[in-house]
């Protein structure tokens, strides 16, 4: 069971959150074409390693968090808000 440090609520159990996938997939601009939306909805890198992803704190503050998690070890290196970016040297 993961424990995620929500910036507003503190360290909480995974079950309080709702996973929302790859945070590097950003919604294209309204005028973008079908390829761009197709990539946004379906194409994923699925890395074996560090992954930047969305977690919605559904049973807490209901804020969307951006989390850097290692898909093999489940280590969490960084948690931030949608507008934030992890520091370059985070492992």
């Amino acid at each position: 069971m993961l424990r995620i440090h929500c910036p507003f609520c503190g360290l909480r159990d995974e079950v309080e959150f709702r996973y929302r996938g790859d945070a590097t997939a950003r919604r294209p601009a309204a005028e973008a074409n079908e390829e761009a939306f197709f990539a946004y909805v379906y194409a994923r890198d699925n890395p074996r390693g560090w992954h930047l992803e969305w977690w919605l704190h559904t049973h807490g503050c209901r804020q969307v968090l951006k989390v850097k998690r290692h898909t093999l070890t489940h280590e969490i290196a960084w948690v931030g808000l949608p507008a934030d970016a992890p520091p370059e040297d985070a492992p």
């Binding site: 929302r20 945070a23 950003r26 919604r27 969305w54 919605l56 559904t58 804020q63 969307v64 949608p82």
Partner: peptide, 17 residues
């Protein structure tokens, strides 16, 4: 009900902040 609320919140906070 719960899914729609999450859908709306997620779009507001990530796609249209």
């Amino acid at each position: 009900a719960d899914e729609v609320l999450a859908h709306m919140e997620w779009h507001l906070q990530t796609a249209w902040p």
